[in-house]
């Protein structure tokens, strides 16, 4: 399963990077969203996927899933929500002010930095 997950994560990263490198603002934002999904799964996979039970104490269970990556991911999920929201607003404000969502045109030129 870990191998399958690794490949899946690689695929998510690839798609995310491809989107981020494109010229359209919206695609970039969606790309960052995909990237954070990929990262979360990566963290989870690194810790191992073989836990018998959720990391919640219960009688008679000793094999818990690794709680540390989960805590990290939980933090990351909430933060990435904040980042997505922020970049979304940034994008559409910039779009409104500059009048284009093409990164090549937005980058400014010699006299208009």
């Amino acid at each position: 399963m870990e191998i399958l997950m690794s490949i899946l994560i690689g695929f998510l990263f690839m798609a995310a990077v491809y989107l981020i490198l494109s010229r359209s603002l919206l695609r970039i934002i969606i790309g960052t969203g995909l990237l954070s999904h990929g990262t979360h799964l990566l963290l989870l996979t690194m810790g191992g996927l073989g836990g018998e039970s959720a990391p919640v104490l219960a009688e008679g269970i000793t094999d818990y899933a690794d709680p540390l990556p989960q805590a990290l991911i939980l933090t990351a999920i909430v933060i990435s929500f904040g980042v997505t929201a922020f970049s979304l607003v940034l994008a559409y404000r910039a779009y409104k002010v500059v009048g284009t969502d093409n990164m090549d045109l937005m980058k400014g030129n010699e006299d208009n930095d």
Binding site: E2, I3, M5, S6, I7, I9, G10, F11, F13, M14, A15, A16, V17, Y18, L21, S22, G38, L42, T45, M46, G48
Partner: peptide, 20 residues
């Protein structure tokens, strides 16, 4: 773009496998 994306994807996969 595709080549860079592919590179990143492959690297991440390798790291995921290696680190596990």
């Amino acid at each position: 773009n595709f080549l860079i994306a592919l590179g990143v994807g492959i690297m991440v996969t390798l790291i995921a496998i290696a680190s596990h």
